[in-house]
Simulated scan of single mutants.
Amino acid sequence: MDNPNHRPGRRHPRTEPPTLVVGVHLVLLDGDTVLLGRRHNTSYANGMWHLPAGHMEPGETVTRAMTREAEEELGILIAEDDLALVHTLHHLDADDGRSRLHLFFRPARHDGQVRNAEPHRCDALRFWRLDQLPANTVPYTAHALGEITRGSALSTVGWPA
């Protein structure tokens, strides 16, 4: 009998496509510095510095997710057309084994003053020199900022070599 899942050259039976968690990250630069927030009262990376970020919600485009997160976390308005994708990171999370696609956006401009609009989740906002990030920066964030500085559009972290 023929196996309907068999395809010449395939090593594994047919499976569902992988489910990716999609994260959006705001790279707000001021000269050679970048805005980071120190996470507070969070289940992930509590006490560590991280870019303003969040996850895409159902029914939302990645650019809308980024503009929503910027407004929720920093109180600023960014037009979706003013976002430039500056890096994509495919991350295999060692903590939970989930595959995550992180998209890093740089805004051409924004309206409003940057402020800590979520003090219950972030206890400090600060601009850090790109070449002197704090030691307690979320590792994949530090990796992505290094890749952005080098002009790299794509990287992977956590995957076996």
Rank of each mutant, 00 (worst) to 15 (best):
54 G>Y: 14
62 V>T: 10
51 L>N: 10
65 A>Y: 02
34 V>Q: 06
32 D>L: 08
64 R>A: 09
49 W>T: 07
79 A>H: 15
87 H>V: 03
30 D>R: 15
81 D>M: 13
57 E>W: 12
47 G>S: 10
72 E>C: 08
78 I>S: 13
77 L>R: 15
76 I>E: 05
47 G>I: 12
86 V>W: 14
84 A>I: 15
32 D>A: 08
77 L>H: 15
92 L>R: 14
64 R>K: 11
67 T>R: 04
41 N>F: 04
29 L>W: 07
71 E>D: 12
89 L>D: 05
88 T>I: 13
70 A>M: 08
74 L>F: 00
91 H>I: 04
46 N>L: 08
48 M>V: 10
30 D>G: 15
46 N>Y: 08
59 G>F: 00
58 P>N: 06
64 R>N: 02
52 P>L: 12
56 M>S: 01
34 V>K: 04
82 D>P: 01
30 D>C: 14
82 D>V: 00
45 A>V: 09
34 V>S: 06
54 G>C: 05
80 E>K: 04
69 E>G: 00
60 E>W: 01
87 H>R: 02
79 A>Y: 15
66 M>H: 07
43 S>P: 03
92 L>C: 03
58 P>A: 10
71 E>Y: 15
38 R>Q: 11
80 E>Q: 09
87 H>Y: 09
50 H>A: 14
38 R>A: 04
46 N>P: 04
43 S>K: 02
94 A>W: 05
56 M>D: 00
67 T>E: 00
30 D>K: 15
63 T>E: 14
62 V>Y: 03
78 I>N: 12
39 R>L: 12
56 M>F: 07
46 N>T: 14
76 I>V: 09
73 E>H: 10
29 L>M: 13
39 R>V: 05
93 D>Y: 02
32 D>R: 02
48 M>N: 07
89 L>C: 05
41 N>M: 02
77 L>E: 11
85 L>I: 00
79 A>F: 12
89 L>N: 04
34 V>L: 08
59 G>N: 05
58 P>R: 13
33 T>C: 06
47 G>H: 09
52 P>V: 05
29 L>F: 10
36 L>G: 01
31 G>K: 06
32 D>E: 14
60 E>L: 01
49 W>M: 03
40 H>R: 09
91 H>V: 04
55 H>E: 11
32 D>C: 05
63 T>P: 07
52 P>H: 06
69 E>V: 05
51 L>P: 07
85 L>Q: 02
62 V>Q: 02
71 E>G: 11
78 I>L: 12
58 P>D: 01
57 E>C: 11
